[in-house]
């Protein structure tokens, strides 16, 4: 001892743009994150609908007509799939973010998740009945 140990730590660089390709769980994470782009776009579609509603019956009819195209169908289909993925990925982590303790024990996570799925079904049903 006494002699200075030579240190030369080696740092492995990580790509800032392609790091998520390394592991399937990172890909799943990115799939969850990009749902926001679709939700953003769809919310602006709703804002356009609201604008046409404010402009009167003719403008609203024009909005409905502009929706009726293969692109309108394709866009809505894509948003449907993506937002459903957002909902599933959101509810499934709720017990981690908001655990519920009753007495000593924590409520099992799957009960919390299933309660959310149930509430989701009820809310969706109400919206569909109201909206149609």
């Amino acid at each position: 001892m006494g002699e200075e140990m030579s240190r030369k730590p080696y740092v492995r660089e990580i790509s800032k743009t392609t790091w998520f390709l390394r592991q399937p769980r990172y890909m799943r994470y990115m799939a969850r994150e990009v749902t926001c782009i679709f939700i953003f776009a769809y919310t602006f579609l709703l804002i356009c609908a609201l604008g046409s509603l404010a402009d009167g019956p003719d403008a609203f009819q024009e909005f409905l007509n502009s929706l009726r195209s293969p692109w309108g169908v394709l866009f809505n289909l894509a948003v449907l799939v993506v937002t459903a993925y957002h909902s599933l990925s959101w509810f499934v982590v709720t017990p981690q973010a908001m655990p519920i303790q009753r007495g000593e024990e924590f409520v099992p996570g799957n009960i919390i998740v299933n309660a959310h799925y149930g509430a989701w079904a009820v809310v969706s049903l109400i919206i569909l009945i109201w909206g149609m």
Binding site: V73, V79, S87, A119, S124, I127, M132
Partner: peptide, 18 residues
């Protein structure tokens, strides 16, 4: 959005189908 957006999209999808 997790609770309401998929149902809203279903409605606009119907509208898009005409």
């Amino acid at each position: 959005t997790a609770f309401v957006t998929p149902a809203l999209v279903l409605i606009t999808l119907f509208a898009a189908f005409g």
